[in-house]
Design a binder for these strands. Structure first.
Length: 864
RNA sequence: GCCCCCAUGGCGGAAUUGGUAGACGCGGCAGACUCAAAAUCUGUUGCCCGCGAGGGCGUGUUGGUUCGAGUCCGACUGGGGGCACCA
């Protein structure tokens, strides 16, 4: 298309880079502490520098940017920083596959992605940029770890890990697929290693109970965290061991949530990992074999589901705790977890399905002790299903007749009186294992000395930096085989010692970066206390729901750990949280069943989809989350090049509610693009009519008043929408206002003044969403300065209310007419007007009104 | 298996929280401009019956509460998410 045919055309390429430069040069988005203004900290989850940004980032950062720009316009002192979650496994994989050093790879990716983010026109304060792989960042993390260690929040523990014997490394649970290493395919072994743990369980109760006072977090996330923490009330009970192999006076401690069913016990079961099992296995080869067998069982969901309940009858028994003279057999059972409770349980088959399955297999007795409501105690029996609901206790001596909750209280009191147990609260939450046998992570600042044990690196020797001269041609952690780095003198005795070669879980890096952003330049501390106190907590945090548990829970823990060592007085890092939905796209498969990229296909006129290269048929699959493996991805760079950042941003905000998944479509993008062009045309034509200089002389016409009302209503509505994260509704209101502007024909100076007022409001309203276009239009309107610095429009309350309202008239609940009435017309008048309507009279068919319901300004319902 | 969420035109989604269902956008249809196409503009567009005026139906299914239900309650169906032998 030649430019002569299109006199008004918005050149986004020139315009977008022009305004990005202007913001940059003026330092528009630099944040400075200013106590005169209310602060607002907007943060989007920082990206892993994988190479290029993807559409998920575009969506996430667009949403955050709308909030940041809106708050700025509302007069808040906004902090909106960005950084890089820069440590992690992909860098090491790149090193192995492409022979690039992880550091080089990471920093090159950061440079690329920073350029991409800048092209989006985000209102970020880049002067605060941090990368977690930088020693100036992680040194503080090492220091905090030492402080936590000293405070008793970090400790070493032997733990079972997934060991890949080919890579010589530990694998996370999700890296084990069907019992094999995800990379090597080697059968994963379980090994016991001494690992660093952080005591997140110390805060289990607080992390749980505080969720209730976090109203600006999604209910869903709070629920997921609550389930993850998994509080359950119950009792620990001490059973006296008897039989061959029991030490005199030895007890077996179990945890149960159903102490009320103790009279129904028929066996005891301990975990294969229980110390007692190990002791018995020493002189019981069959038991040793059974334990080995249990360890082999995989951790995958399918295996757990199908795993049969198995047990091994040991020589031991226990004395029944409430039935004198009786004993219960002790089994080692594959379904008992060492990590939960005490690693030992008592089995009551009548009231626990798992125990029932077990007992049916080994022929043990089933003794019902809870009677369902209305059941007959003489005939009630347990069949294939355990009875797990509330009922009346029977067959249980002094508990008989009580309800389940009452019986729990009674038996716990009884056990506590006799010193045989006590009521406790148990959590599913485990401590946070933070050791990783990897190179590209933050070194754990510890030294292993044969004489002194594990010794902290002295604070003056921090940071412990990663050595650059490492090789990735052999599997395993290159730090382990480094010729010099791991040799160090023991800080305590001075003798030769070894450095810890494990590095931290990268979730630590992201557990405090938001604190660092408050004062990223400080060297002597993780952050400046005053700055941190001013900016924190994060007022609005935005990111993917996939971080609902781990990242958010770890950050909440880290904040408490910092509180413990008196670095802050804060409990919670994030005041408001929003979890955005994914970006999806249709999937395409060629005839040979391979995936195709969206730009490899072509749509024919009839709607059929074919491969662009050879017109072979293509199967269109359902829309799924964009992923490289299915090739249903669209490159943000390309979109920004072809359509501009504002189009991409506008599309991300239109139609789909931000918390739901968004379907990326070519039609949607071009619709967004057309609107940008239309706006530019519309406003430049209106401004060309000499609008900006117009002054109102005399009263506004009805049409002008309607337009002004529309503008002021839009301002009020969009403010509410942005604050409630209803960006799609805000977009709809902007379309409506644009339509109103387009339909308005200014003929008088008053009209032109009304139009100028509306355009002025309009441009400020679109500024958070399409900031480049807004700046351009702002200049076109003849306004000085940046729209980014302009205040948000304040709606005139007098223009928000209509003087006439449309009232619906129903007869027996069915709509029969509408009435145009003055606002707040009294009930009697509205009723009379409704009854006078011809359609209403017809619908009433001569019958008298039995009742008339009038809701002022809304509805009149005549019941006949 | 347990816990949680969701279901509205051809499509994405609105609906002041119990008061005119379908805002706004996409797509479709008709028209204008054009030699033609693209772009743009105008009109129209929930479904069914009817030439028409008009009428009927309609928020996954079903039952209930209410003058009035997309919205509240019960049951069911379908889709999505979280947890996974948690004693």
């Amino acid at each position: 298309m030649s430019s002569s045919q299109s006199p008004v055309r918005y050149n986004f390429r020139e315009t977008e880079s022009k305004w990005q430069k202007a913001w940059d040069e003026r330092g528009t988005f630099r944040a400075k502490m200013d106590r005169a203004k209310p602060k607002y900290y907007v943060l989007e989850m920082f990206p892993y520098p994988s190479g290029r940004i993807h559409m998920g980032h575009v969506r996430n950062y667009t949403q955050g940017d709308v909030v940041a720009r809106y708050r700025r316009a509302r007069g808040f002192n906004v902090l909106h920083p960005m950084g890089w979650d820069a440590f992690g496994l992909p860098a090491e994989n790149a090193a192995m596959q492409m022979k690039v050093h992880p550091k080089k790879w990471t920093y090159e990716n950061i440079a690329t992605m920073k350029g991409q983010l800048k092209s989006m026109g985000l209102s970020l304060d880049w002067s605060r940029e941090v990368a977690t792989c930088d020693p100036s960042y992680y040194r503080h993390q090492q220091k905090m770890f030492l402080d936590f260690w000293q405070a008793g929040l970090a400790y070493r523990k032997e733990a079972w890990v997934n060991w890949d014997p080919v890579d010589n490394t530990v694998l996370a649970n999700e890296q084990v697929i069907d019992g094999k290493g995800w990379r090597t395919g080697a059968t994963v072994e379980r090994r016991k290693l001494s690992q660093w743990n952080l005591k997140i369980t110390h805060y289990a109760e607080e992390l749980l109970s505080r969720l209730e006072s976090m109203p600006r977090w999604p209910e869903k996330v709070r629920l997921m965290q609550a389930n993850w923490i998994g509080r359950s009330e119950g009792a620990r009970v001490f059973f006296a061991l008897t039989g061959e192999g029991a030490e005199p006076g030895e007890t077996l401690e179990i945890f149960t949530t159903r102490p009320d069913t103790l009279f129904g016990a028929s066996f005891m079961a301990i975990s294969p990992d229980h110390p007692l099992a190990a002791r018995l296995a020493k002189d019981d080869a069959a038991l040793a074999a059974f334990i080995a067998e249990c360890r082999k069982t995989g951790t995958s969901a399918a295996e757990i589901e199908t795993a049969e309940k198995k047990g091994y009858r040991t020589r031991l028994s226990v004395k029944h705790i409430v039935k004198d003279g009786e004993t219960l057999p002790v089994y080692v059972a594959n379904f008992v977890l060492m990590e939960y409770g005490t690693g030992a349980i008592f089995g009551c088959p009548a009231h626990d399905q798992r125990d029932l399955d077990f007992v049916r297999k080994y022929g043990l007795p089933v003794i019902p002790v809870v009677l369902p409501k209305d059941a007959d105690p003489r005939s009630f029996t347990i069949g294939a299903e355990a009875f797990v609901e509330d009922g009346t206790i029977y067959n249980s001596a002094f508990l008989n007749g009580l309800s389940v909750p009452d019986a729990k209280r009674a038996i716990i009191r009884h056990l506590e009186d006799k010193g045989q147990g006590k009521g406790t609260v148990q959590y599913r939450l485990r401590d946070w294992l933070v050791s990783r046998q990897r190179y590209w992570g933050c070194p754990i600042p510890a030294i292993h000395c044969d004489a002194c044990g594990v010794v902290p690196v002295p604070a003056k020797d921090l940071p412990v930096t990663l050595p650059d001269d490492v090789e990735f041609d052999t599997p395993g952690n290159p730090l382990d085989r480094h010729p010099t780095w791991n040799h160090v003198a023991c800080p305590s005795c001075g003798k030769p010692a070894r450095r810890e070669t494990d590095t931290f879980d990268t979730f630590i890096d992201s557990s405090w970066y938001f604190d660092r952003f408050t004062s990223p330049g400080v060297e002597s501390a993780p952050f400046d206390r005053e700055e941190n106190h001013y900016w924190m907590p994060v007022d609005q945090y935005i990111g993917g729901v996939e971080h609902a548990i781990l990242h958010l829970l770890y950050s909440r823990f880290w904040t408490r750990a910092m509180r413990e060592v008196r670095m802050t007085g804060r409990d919670e890092p994030f005041d408001g949280l929003f979890t955005q939905g994914m970006v999806c796209h249709e999937t395409y498969r060629a005839a040979d069943n391979t995936w195709l990229f969206p730009d490899e296909i072509k749509r024919l006129d009839g709607g059929a989809v074919v491969r662009a290269s050879d017109s072979s048929p293509v199967t269109v699959g359902r829309s799924e989350k964009m992923s490289k493996s299915k090739k249903n991805v669209v490159d943000p760079d390309q979109i920004i090049r072809d359509y501009g950042a504002d189009t991409a941003r506008w599309f991300m905000l239109s139609d789909s509610p931000p918390e739901r998944d968004l379907e990326w479509t070519e039609a949607g993008v071009s619709g967004a693009w057309r609107f940008q062009q239309r706006l530019y045309r519309l406003l430049s034509e209106a401004i060309g009519g000499g609008v900006s200089a117009a002054k109102a002389n005399g009263a506004f016409s009805d049409a002008a008043m309607t337009l002004r009302r529309a503008a002021h209503k839009a301002a009020a509505g969009i403010s509410a929408d942005i604050e409630a994260f209803h960006f799609n509704k805000a977009v709809a209101r902007l379309y409506e206002l644009a339509n109103a502007i387009e339909g308005f024909k200014a003929t008088t100076d008053s009209d032109r003044a009304a139009l100028a007022e509306t355009l002025d409001i309009f441009v400020r309203l679109i500024a958070p969403m399409t900031p480049h276009l807004a700046e351009e239009l702002w200049t076109l309107l003849g306004r000085d300065g940046l729209v980014a610095d302009a205040p948000w429009p304040t709606p005139d309350a007098a223009l928000l209310a209509d003087e006439a309202v449309t009232v619906a008239v129903q007869v027996n609940g069915k709509l029969r007419a509408t009435l145009k009435l003055a606002k707040d017309t009294p009930k009697e008048k509205a009723e009379a007007a409704a009854l006078a309507e011809a359609d209403v009279i017809k619908a009433m068919a001569g019958k008298p009104a039995k009742k008339i319901v009038v809701v002022p300004n809304r509805i009149v319902n005549v019941v006949v």
